[in-house]
Design a protein around this nucleic acid. Structure first.
Lengths: 207, 207
DNA sequence: AGTCCTACTTACCGATCGTTCAGTCAGGCT
DNA sequence: AGCCTGACTGAACGATCGGTAAGTAGGACT
């Protein structure tokens, strides 16, 4: 067991590629990197650790990506792209409340489907330019949802005794927290989870 | 402005101590450290940065604490101690729902009062033994609250169509998220915040 | 057969990390 | 006057960091 233990089977090129080479593609490197970043934190994860987990050398990684920060950038792009797509094509005929519920369910779906990538996004500190840009895009997403909440309050669909901004933040806190505990295959599907989130958010826990 | 810009005025010893010395005590070092850890992450914060912010040298810090990890340990102890105290002396006559609400409000109060310390706690990754021990204590706290939720569901006070464990986690997600956005002095008091949390958690957002 | 490209490897770089150590200096004590 | 202690300073330590340069095995292509 002193062979590269955590590495997924390297993608041996079949079909269109060269055969017989131990070739990692960018996706394999990225997924191993993101998992490590989430386990130990971005800063605490060295390129050496990544190489170990991939079963290669540090420099091999630099063949696929320009550096550590590009791994971060690619991962954040994937998370943000999926979230931002939730805001496209809203049904203009639907009520603000309906659109909010749809975004909420969509967010749960994306968080579950892209768990490691979104996890990374939600833990950013803003130390570098890459991180700050991602944080700005995340803030823009948050604001779009906040506008939906305000609209629903104006419609009289949501209670007005709780500040809309505070409500939005608590709502997001609830949804985003799932990256800290939800693990797929644990007997709770993404749909069930979305149901629980919507139920608690809109109707509350009281019997 | 090339003097130690971020350093709080060093505690010049008055009264019982020696006068005229630039003396930092442990509390001052700790509070600067925790703030830096929260801004840039524990791993991304170097002892050199801490020294700069304190307006001293790296080695001066080692006079007060045994090392970087002890700063972390002291900070986590403060956060965990305050949270764990919430579970002491519950009124055994009160219903599970009442006790849950009291813990919830207490948690909001502690998070607000000890914001930087709890923030640090909630961002742990478990890289070292110190971090893993803190995570274990945090899990124990979570379990105690989960038991309260289960009790309240058994009483019929909370809805049973949402899994108690899931509900607890969403509840905590909501409360814990406030370290990411709540800033004191922003026109929202801790009590108002607790009201909003309890309202949303128990009654939901629907008008 | 010879050349080219892909996908690496080994060896190393300078910078920075947390930490240590020896020395210093102001004030209090005797 | 002499000594002690508390609170540092400045220089250096070895380890580790992210990243680079140069070389190369092996299949594809001509």
């Amino acid at each position: 067991m002193d062979e590269p233990a955590h590495a997924p089977a390297p993608a041996r090129r079949g079909g269109n590629g060269r055969a017989g080479r131990v070739a990692y593609d960018l996706d394999a490197v990225l997924s191993v990197a993101v998992q490590a970043f989430n386990e130990r934190g971005y800063d605490a994860t060295s390129m050496g650790t990544l190489a170990e987990r991939l079963g290669t050398s540090k420099s091999a990684i630099y063949y696929h990506v320009s550096g550590k920060e590009e791994l971060l950038r690619l991962a954040l792009e994937r998370a943000l792209g999926n979230l931002e797509r939730l805001l496209d094509e809203p049904d203009p005929a639907a009520s603000a409340l309906d659109r909010l519920e749809r975004v909420l369910r969509g967010a749960v779906r994306v968080l579950v489907a892209e768990l490691p990538f979104v996890t990374l996004l939600l833990r950013l500190r803003g130390n570098t330019e890459v991180e700050r840009e991602a944080l700005a895009r995340r803030r823009e997403f948050d604001h779009a949802v906040a506008r939906l909440v305000e609209e629903a309050v104006a419609d009289g669909a949501l209670r007005s005794d709780v500040d809309a901004r505070t409500a939005t933040r608590l709502l997001f806190g609830m949804v985003n927290s799932l990256v800290e505990w939800y693990r797929p295959g644990g007997g709770l599907s993404a749909d069930q989870l979305a149901d629980a989130v919507v139920a608690m958010a809109f109707e509350g826990l009281r019997a």
